[in-house]
Design a binder for these strands. Structure first.
Length: 455
RNA sequence: GCCGCUAUCGUCUAGGGGACUAGGACGCCGGAUUCUCAGUCCGGAAACCGGGGUUCGAAUCCCCGUAGCGGUACCA
């Protein structure tokens, strides 16, 4: 029964913290689902928890969405701003008798359960007290089944659910009620969200039924875990979108990697541009088991994307990350480093010597500046002083015969030069590095190294 | 406790009763590229949670167990 009607999905984060990787993947899947079929994405901020919701968090989430380049068609809509709608629906349920006020506290419910058994949901007594919380009547018999696009039908016995609270004594509504009302009112056709909501879905279905609304279709995504199998958190390294950005990852690489966490193609394609993701993604194809976030693979994928960038794009990305001008100098530096870095953050270590004096890497110096290092540096220095043009090709031409002249392996000549001009043992190709540094500065640094070796 | 979900190499996954000698990718190990690192190329080790069924045949279907995870708030 294929349905060609464009879908309408929503991403509904609660602004109680930064946007985590799990939330980012949920956002991405919703976005892919919407873009795939020409549907719409609604961004709704679930801010009914007035204690924990903050403006800063909302701003941070929006910022993360923008960085990921995930746009939305409607919103951001504040759930709290829809209080009138919620109150109306609440009154409807009160009037019809589907919900009732109950003065029982959490402790009372606990006591009730101790008496009636743990497999039995709480059932309360209606009160005329207008300040009491509102509970929804849950049937004692039968079951509520969630027809999940990913898991198939999942049944929950009604008996095991409490007559749950849908509104506080002061009239403000609770999550499971607000979500059900909003999804229905906003015409959401598919709810794609984390698996942690699966057990709450029957409650939302019960609300929808009581209100006489047709339920949306549901798809519950497997959760994301850290390397230790536990729920993802800060101690697992980069856990929020913000941290991924700071670590120097490209948005396109993050989208590709996140898409692969819980979803795969049947032909094993791994590297995919976003257009291809959009074209191939289907929620129905999402897997059922939790996935572990592995930064190693993200790093590799990021390197792939970095190397595919044009030099201009690459330089712009590096400039943005480093907070520098994308000038000719940086562009030249990027040109010799592009093939070597996996993240934007790593680029600096490779090109730093072009902007600052050599670093002080004692280990590199101790390892390289011995044996024939002095002779190698002196021979190289005079060769470099003579060369007519100071481009990579010419530099190579004049340096190339030196190892043989000295009867040394190439590494014994090039490594000392590398340490002399960069201070450390890792850098872009030595000829390119010298050319980029320029003759004067190269000679100055080699002279300094020679002087130090002699002392 | 109760309700529910999940289970293929270390990790992400392909597979949906015979095409499985279980494929790919990351990572790891070894080799090549005779300047480091990275990249690239080649090769290698590495998995169907356990036990019962069903069937001529099970990684694939069913049951039980085990483990992990989620829910069980006047949080979202």
């Amino acid at each position: 029964m294929p349905d060609d009607t464009p879908i309408r999905v929503r991403f509904a984060p609660s602004p109680t913290g930064a946007l985590h990787i799990g939330g980012a993947r949920t956002a991405l899947y919703n976005w892919l689902a919407a873009r795939h079929g020409g549907g719409e994405l609604v961004l709704r901020i679930e801010d009914t928890d007035r204690e924990r919701s903050t403006e800063e968090n909302v701003a941070q989430i929006l910022d993360a969405m923008e960085w990921l380049e995930l746009d939305w068609d409607v919103g951001p809509v504040s759930q709290a701003s829809r209080a009138d709608l919620h109150a109306e629906a609440l009154q409807q349920l009160l009037d019809s008798g589907a919900a009732y006020r109950d003065s029982a506290t959490a402790k009372d419910v606990e006591a009730w359960k101790a008496e009636h058994g743990a497999d039995r949901g709480y059932r309360g007594e209606p009160t005329s007290d207008d300040g009491a919380a509102v509970r929804l009547r849950v049937p004692d018999d039968g079951e509520t089944v969630v027809h999940d696009l990913i898991r198939g039908p999942v049944s929950f016995p009604n008996r095991s659910y409490d007559d749950f609270v849908i509104a506080r004594g002061d009239g403000s509504v609770l999550y499971n009620f607000a979500v059900a009302v909003d999804d229905a009112e906003m015409g959401i056709s598919e709810v794609v969200r984390g698996d942690d909501h699966l057990s709450n879905t029957p409650k939302q279905l019960l609300v929808l039924t009581a209100l006489g609304h047709e339920p949306p279709r549901y798809a519950h995504l497997p959760l994301l875990h850290g390397p230790d199998g536990k729920k993802l958190s800060k101690r697992h390294g980069a856990a929020s979108v913000q941290e991924l950005r700071e670590a120097g990852y490209l948005p396109a690489a993050v989208r590709n990697y996140l898409a692969l966490l819980g979803w795969g193609t049947d032909d094993d394609t791994t590297v995919m541009a976003t257009e291809e993701l959009v074209r191939r993604f289907r929620v129905e194809d999402v897997g059922r088991s939790a996935a572990i976030f592995d930064e190693k693979k993200l790093r590799w994928l990021n390197g792939r994307f970095m190397r595919e960038l044009s030099l201009d794009e690459y330089t712009a990305a590096v400039a943005r990350h480093l907070g520098r001008e994308a000038d000719a100098r940086l562009r030249a530096a990027c040109a010799i480093a592009q093939e070597k870095a996996q993240t934007l953050e790593e680029v600096w270590a490779l090109i730093r010597f072009l902007f600052e004096p050599p670093v002080d890497d004692e280990k590199a110096w101790a390892k390289v500046m011995k044996d024939g290092a002095l002779a190698a540096l002196e021979a190289s220095r005079s060769a470099l002083a003579e060369v007519s043009a100071f481009d990579a090709e010419s530099v190579e031409g004049v340096l190339d015969p030196i190892p043989e002249q000295l009867g040394a392996k190439p590494g014994k000549v090039y490594q000392p030069i590398r340490v002399a001009i960069t201070g450390t043992s890792v850098s872009p190709g030595i000829f390119e590095s010298l050319a980029a540094l320029g003759r004067d500065e190269s000679l100055t640094r080699i002279d300094a190294a020679v002087a130090r070796l002699r002392s």
